[in-house]
Every structure is written in C-alpha cells, then in structure tokens.
Amino acid sequence: MPSFPEPQWFLALGRLMEAEGALFQRLGFAETRFVVRVIPDEGANGGEKLIGLVIDGYRLSEAASVDDLDRFDPDFVICAKRSVWERMLAEIAESGRPSLRHTLSSLALVGEEMWLESSDQLREDKFYRYNQTLQELLNLASRVSG
C-alpha cells in the first residue's frame, strides 16, 4: 500500500476525490498546480520530498515527485516537517478532519509549523481561493490505508 507522501498515496486521494464527485462539485472547480514539501524531522534519515500535484476542475490529474521546482512551476509550495503532516493526517484519521488550529490555512497563517512559498502573491492566493477544496482533499486521507 502506498504511504504518505508517495505520489501513489496522493493518487489514491485523487481517486476518492472523483468518487466523492458531489462534494467537490458543490465546492466548485479548482485549477491549481502546487507542491507538497515534506521536510525530514531533525535527526531523521532521508531527504526532503517534493510532490507536485495538479487539480484540474474536480479531479487530481497529476501527482509526481518533483526534482526541479522551476520546471514544475507551482502556484505555491506548502512546506512542513514530516511530523506536522503526520499529526494532521492522524487527526484526520481519528475524526475526519484536523483539529481547529491544525487546518492547512491555520497552520500556514501562523507560519511556524507550516508555511507557503511562492514567487508571486497572486499565485499564492490560489491557496486561499481553493482552500476548502485542498482541505477536503486531504481530509479524504482518513479513507486511504497506509
């Protein structure tokens, strides 16, 4: 079974997104390409992971490891240590969504545990324009094994 943050894990989320068509159609379409950056915790083995994701309307059309950020040209990069991502996923697994102050938007607002990187504020603002879609996509993690 694929595990976070392997591209296959995200693609599994994408399949659930399509299966949950009504939920995402009600939220409205989203068009964005972004990167999830998973930074190893201090003392942990392995390097950081960059996963490029493309949401095209109501589906996750692409999930792949990214070697060259410039070439992928994301609207924004969501950065956090692995433990922060895993805490969010654990909360989602437990109750279907992260706790109030551990949502994508809340964490990125404070900017300590999670932060955004972007070359253009206008493109970074897509994180906010499509925030509900992004959060609901991650919330599907409660139904992905691994």
Partner: peptide, 27 residues
Amino acid sequence: RQGEFIAPSRVDQEIFRRCMQDESRHV
C-alpha cells in the same frame, strides 16, 4: 484567515474559510 485560525467552533471556521475563498477572488 485569522478568523479561520481563531475560530472557537467548526461553525465559525466554516464561515471564515468560505469567506476567505471569496475574498481571494476580489483581491
């Protein structure tokens, strides 16, 4: 965005998050 962060309940969080999305388009 602060409202989404400070929301004392899921009701408030939902309100602020949805308004945030709208406001981003205006900006």
